[in-house]
Design a protein around this nucleic acid. Structure first.
Length: 278
DNA sequence: ACGAGGTCCTGCGAGC
DNA sequence: TGCTCGCAGGACCTCG
């Protein structure tokens, strides 16, 4: 499930392959994924356009086009953007949502098994509005622990839910929220406004560490996620709590527990290390 | 203004 | 063996 590290990996992989390339014969196989654009306009804008830059914002892939528009792709659960050297196998065709030819050779494919991902085409004004309602990038050099605490601590919601709120902080999803909270030894159900400054500083450090390490490992492959070159990530081998419910804690051997009490999402934690009350 | 809960979508694995 | 069912969950939406 692409969170910040998975999307960053996809972007790094495909950037050298598609930057400067001219787009030909775009095909859209499912229209319900479109936001703020019709199929007709999307295909008209893409055909003959050129990719000037490939960026990431939060969990979204941003293709900056020569025409000034941005093609924004949200992979959500199972989406990914991959470059194929030639035409698609039947299996690849089955999951393709958007297919764009690259002049010369190759295809750029937005592939999405569950088709929960979305595609946006935004002009400059639309992009400004879009990016402004997403929180700051946690790995930016000028993003400090004070700003982190300020953005999260004014809520009575569980800290885990707040950590995953994209309007407060960009890029953290369920996997890395679980990991960061375990490493900071914090109870995921604590109300965000009850954490001390020291606890926020600790969580700030573990969020950044977990995201950086996951990028180094090219992300976490649980099921469908692949990097932009079709490989698996390897961070799943480093996960301390996510997906390990019922297994012993790596620090104290207490059996890890899984609950769905916070926002209906799977939360795995160590009773002892994270000081969770019954 | 904020929080809770529903919705989308398909594949997979548990259980009978 | 083959079927049903619940779950995976990000981000949008509506409702109270």
């Amino acid at each position: 499930m692409p969170e910040l590290p998975e999307v960053e990996t996809i972007v790094r992989d495909i950037r050298p392959l598609i930057t400067g390339r001219t787009l030909t014969r775009p095909k859209l196989y499912h229209t319900h994924v479109l936001r703020r654009v019709t199929k007709t306009r999307l295909l008209r804008v893409l055909a003959g356009n050129r990719i000037e830059a490939v960026d990431r914002r939060a969990k979204h892939i941003v293709l900056c086009l020569k025409s000034g528009e941005r093609l924004v792709i949200q992979p959500r659960m199972t989406g990914s953007l991959v470059v194929h050297p030639s035409h698609l196998t039947p299996d690849e065709r089955r999951y393709a949502v958007l297919q764009i030819g690259l002049e010369g050779n190759g295809q750029l494919i937005f592939r999405d098994v569950r088709r929960l991902g979305t595609i946006w085409l935004l002009d400059e004004e639309g992009w400004q509005a879009y990016t402004q309602h997403i929180g700051p990038e946690p790995l930016e050099a000028d993003f400090g622990s004070k700003q982190f605490a300020r953005r999260l601590s004014n809520s009575r919601q569980a800290i885990k839910k707040v950590l995953m709120d994209q309007r407060r902080l960009a890029g953290v999803g369920n996997i890395y929220a679980n990991e960061a909270l375990f490493r900071a030894r914090l109870d995921p159900s604590r109300r965000a406004n009850r954490l001390s400054q020291a606890e926020y500083q600790s969580l700030y450090r573990t969020v950044r560490a977990v995201l950086r390490e996951a990028i180094q490992e090219k992300g976490t492959t649980v099921r469908d996620y692949r990097t932009g070159t079709g490989e698996s990530g390897s961070y799943q081998q480093i996960l301390r709590v996510y997906g390990r419910g019922g297994e012993p804690c790596l620090l104290c051997r207490t059996l890890l527990a899984t609950t769905h009490a916070i926002d209906g999402r799977a939360t795995t934690f160590c009773w002892r290390c994270q000081g969770v009350q019954e």
